[in-house]
Amino acid sequence: MRVIGAIFWKELKGYFLSPVAYVVLTGFTAISGWLFYQLLNYFLRITNIVSGYMVKGQIMREWTIADDIMGPLYKNLSLFLIILVPGVTMRLFSEEKKLKTEELLLTAPIRMGQVVLGKYLASVVLLFLMLIPVGVYMSLILYYGSEPDLGTVLSGYLGLFLVAFSLAAIGIFASSLTENQIIAFFVCAVIGLLFFSVGLAARSVGVVSIFSRQLDLGELLRQLSLFEHYSHIVAGRIQLTDPVFFLLIIIFFLFASRINAESARWS
């Protein structure tokens, strides 16, 4: 706890004493605010004219706050996170490698797991702060909206946190691979994109047989898709696999980072 705390505070101060935190917070707030305003404005305009989504003069589905403002907002923001989270996490281990301060961590009487956890928590706190404005927009909607779908709106917001935290774990892992921050950034972004887009491939692959056993490869890919799970949560349809998926991503990549950071000893 002591070590995790020390690493955590050091990294958090590091964020706020360098421009990183402000660039990220300002950028994300501006983008999310603008997106929110656009969606809100569109919603207001459209619901003044028609009450629902029409096809051939018939209402196919009603416009709702959850599906037509917050849902798209959450989904779009999750895509921004693919770019922003690597920016937050890229320095965590790369900088230590570059400045050779890694030697201090590796020779102190501490475990690498504690270091990874401390650093991860620091990035998580920054991301948490980053997502607070989105919560403000959400409360505005809940305050002014008539009969908003509280459950769906809230679960989507929590889903956004899960996405950010999973990407942060991936980012830490990427950072532990290299001393070059730019490479760490791109590795994280690429892994993130892969996890986002793997579900698209699911459509074109079906059931395959391997060694005369049936394997639903499409379903497997769908289950691996971060966006698929996230969409469920945003739609308010939470399956057990959805939170478990994010949890497993976080655990897997944190462990992988620990193993990786430890491996600096054998070079």
Binding site: G33, L40, L44, T47, R61, E62, I65, L140, S146
Partner: peptide, 28 residues
């Protein structure tokens, strides 16, 4: 799905615009 609506005035919309797109990022 049952519909849900938002009832706010043009003035409130403008306040939301200024605070979310301009003021908060500006402060940060």
């Amino acid at each position: 799905r049952k519909p849900s609506r938002i009832f706010i005035t043009a003035g409130q919309t403008r306040i939301i615009f200024y605070s979310s797109v301009l003021i908060i990022p500006e402060i940060l």
